[in-house]
């Protein structure tokens, strides 16, 4: 996260933050991140490409929804706490009511025989998309035994053995960080 830039920052108010994140949210069917990049870097020019990448990787590292973390960081940069709140509100308010409307539809009609089958198909498809996301993430890992072993171990313990998440993470995270700390910053050889 870079907080200092040489150019004077353009005036960005809470209303701008709210509107920008509202646009990101509304455009973001099936993933908001590409829209966030377009809006924040190309359209509003609030962040450079590099800064966006930094914010995003920080947002992914921190617990919590990635895009919400980015909204908090961008909001805080321009307007402090009020900015963060405005950005998160912009991001959430329209999709929240939209999704609730869908949930209300589901609650009323989801158990009708025909609709039910559609939903079963949709659920399987959504699960498949989740698997695709996991495969993409796994492919992005370094091609080293320790990293691929961690992917497989996390999958096996939670997905197959159905162990609870928190103990699994508490056990695996220290091992993962230790292994990562032994990997040199550049070059592909294992230590």
């Amino acid at each position: 996260m870079q907080e200092t830039t040489l150019q004077p920052l353009p005036p960005v108010g809470t209303r701008n933050l709210f509107m920008a994140f509202l646009r990101i949210a509304v455009a973001g069917v099936g993933g908001v991140l590409p829209h966030a990049q377009h809006q924040l870097v190309e359209r509003e020019r609030w962040l450079t490409q590099r800064e966006f990448a930094d914010y995003l990787s920080a947002g992914q590292l921190l617990p919590g929804p990635n895009i919400v973390n980015v909204a908090i960081m961008v909001g805080a940069r321009y307007q402090g706490l009020g900015g963060s709140l405005a950005a998160v509100a912009g991001l959430m308010v329209v999709p929240f009511f939209f999704v609730i409307a869908l949930a209300a539809f589901y609650r009323s009609f989801g158990e009708e025989p025909y609709v039910r089958q559609v939903f079963h198909g949709i659920s399987a498809g959504a699960a498949g998309l989740m698997i695709a996301t996991g495969v993409k993430l796994a492919r992005a890992q370094p091609r080293q035994a320790w990293a691929l072993g961690l992917v497989a171990t996390a999958f096996g313990l939670v997905g197959l053995a159905r162990l609870p998440l928190i103990p699994v993470l508490l056990a695996l995270a220290p091992i993962a960080l230790w292994l990562a700390s032994r990997t040199p910053a550049k070059g592909k050889q294992t230590p």
Binding site: A127, M130, L137, L160
Partner: peptide, 9 residues
Amino acid sequence: AGLVLANGW
């Protein structure tokens, strides 16, 4: 990555 795969499964 492993946890997202587990979730999909």
